[in-house]
Write a protein that binds this DNA or RNA. Structure first.
Lengths: 136, 136
DNA sequence: CAAGATTGATAGATCAATCTTA
DNA sequence: TAAGATTGATCTATCAATCTTG
């Protein structure tokens, strides 16, 4: 079910806005910050992505003018990723449509107690994943 | 949560048996049949994969000797995919371990009524997906 | 050396075009 | 023509190695 659902959400975003779910997630995280700006390692942590995946993905998004880079003056190893005007416009268009699709496919007509169970279930699995995480 | 979970299940299979979740799904479908043999279009339907994805994937699995091809005498356009001895041995080793991982990460300590809700939720979303499927 | 991040190679997924036979 | 399936090009994900600065 989840792979079907994710596939559909992906296609919807792609067809309507030229975004993948991955693009969407990156843009949403950036939008959640006051200046639309995050360090790369913060993004990596929030999204739970590998550094390398994120780095490649950001390079592609930068080519498409969805995000840009800014130097970090306090730590010169690091970089800031910032939303561009295009990036902000795109996510502001895409988000309501995406939310509506999720509502139609998942939450519409779903009993309230099912939503509560889903919430608790997610917390349960996430905590199991964390408990058993490989410690580097 | 689902992407984290899928990531972990993937890694576990990969590290322990050199299989991806996709490989696993293909092998399981084949094991479910009496002769360990299916037409390509049946696999595509069962897995809900595009023809092309499946075709590329089977080519790679064939190179790794997990599956093999047989000609279809009644419809010479088509092909059968069959489990090899290696493929059968691999899935027979991997399946119990995979099931155990899923049990640990999801079902262990989960209230029975939550499982029932999960089941009903999945059916709900799948039926929504089908209702709103693009008709070709 | 470790942290922050990028790079290049390879495996996997997606799209459009193609090939063969019903 | 359509069904069954493959191919080549392109995009994305993963792995190992590397680069730079703290």
């Amino acid at each position: 079910m989840t792979s079907q659902l994710q596939g559909r959400l992906n296609r919807q975003l792609q067809d309507a806005f030229g975004l993948s779910l991955a693009d969407y997630d990156v843009l949403v995280r950036l939008t959640d910050t006051p200046q639309g700006r995050l360090r790369v390692y913060e993004l990596a942590h929030d999204l739970q992505w590998e550094q390398s995946r994120l780095s490649h993905h950001l390079a592609r998004m930068q080519r498409r003018r969805l995000v840009a880079r800014e130097e970090c003056t306090t730590d010169r190893r690091g970089a800031f990723i910032v939303l561009t005007r295009t990036g902000r416009r795109t996510i502001e268009e895409a988000a309501p449509a995406h939310v509506e699709t999720v509502r139609e496919l998942v939450f519409d007509g779903l009993p309230v107690d099912h939503v509560a169970v889903l919430d608790s279930l997610s917390a349960h699995v996430l905590s199991r994943l964390e408990e058993s995480a490989p410690t580097p």
